[in-house]
Each structure stands twice: as C-alpha cells, then as structure tokens.
Amino acid sequence: MSYARLPGLPIVDAMTPAVLVLVGPVTRDEVAGLCDDVRALLEASGAGVVVCDVGGLGPPGLGAVDLLARLQLAARRAGGRIRLRDPDPALHALLDLVGLRFEKEGEPEQREPALGVEEAVESGDPAL
C-alpha cells in the first residue's frame, strides 16, 4: 500500500505553537520585520500562540521591553498572543516593573489553578 504524502510536517497540528527565536540585540529597523513574522506565524499555524524564545536576546533593557510590547501588540491584532520561553530573571523583573505581563512557557495560565492547590473551607461555612 502507498499513499501520497501530505505537505508539511505530519505531527504538527493546530495545537502546536509556532516558535520565533529572538537573537539580540535587535535593532529598531528589525522590529517591523519581526512583527510581520509574528503575524505570519499566527496565520500559518492557526494555534493562536507564538512562543518567543528570548534566551538569546541579550542583556535586558528598554529595547527588549519595547520589542516584546510591539510583538504582543502585533499578535493581539492578529487574534493571538505571545508566550515567552527562557526569559532572563532580570528581563522578567523589568517587564513587571513597567507593568507588562507575559505568559511564560511552563507556567500555568491565569485561568487555570496550579496543580495541587486546594481551597480551604471555613468552619462556619454552610455545606452545599
């Protein structure tokens, strides 16, 4: 038996996020092209999430914050979002300082409770 091979990777489906590796430092001229890359990856994968590998981005600074904010904006305009892979702790702290929240790969989403968390019951609560 034989069959025609379908184009693309057979193990990749709509639930597999696309990955964009960011190697820095990124110049201001490259930002628009990276935003286009995020939009193209969202359209091609259909997953709604682009994982941005920021491990090689270089020392954290306002340039990295600006880049990630623009990538998130481009992703949201395209109907998706970005998730960070391997962020430097200093970059994560700087993003928190300026008020930008990003999902990190390997962390539970805000909508999901962390595993092993149980709710406490007050002794005066009525039973349901």
Rank of each mutant, 00 (worst) to 15 (best):
L95D: 03
A32N: 08
R28V: 14
E107T: 07
P60M: 01
V51G: 00
G48C: 04
A120Y: 07
G55D: 01
L42A: 05
T27I: 05
K104A: 07
E107M: 09
E118D: 06
A32V: 11
L62E: 09
V121N: 00
G33I: 00
L91E: 03
D37K: 04
A32M: 05
P25Y: 07
R111N: 07
S2W: 00
E103K: 06
R39N: 02
V121K: 03
T27Y: 10
G106K: 07
L67H: 04
L115I: 07
V21S: 09
R39H: 04
L100N: 04
A127R: 11
G124T: 12
L34M: 10
A69C: 08
D37M: 02
P10L: 15
V21T: 15
V26I: 15
A74H: 02
A14N: 09
L100I: 05
D36L: 13
V21R: 10
G58Y: 03
T27H: 13
I82V: 12
M1F: 00
L115E: 10
P59G: 05
D88F: 01
V49I: 15
R101C: 11
V38C: 11
C52Y: 04
L41M: 13
C52G: 05
E112A: 12
A18N: 00
V38F: 12
G61H: 03
R70M: 05
D88R: 02
R83S: 07
V38D: 09
V26L: 10
G79F: 15
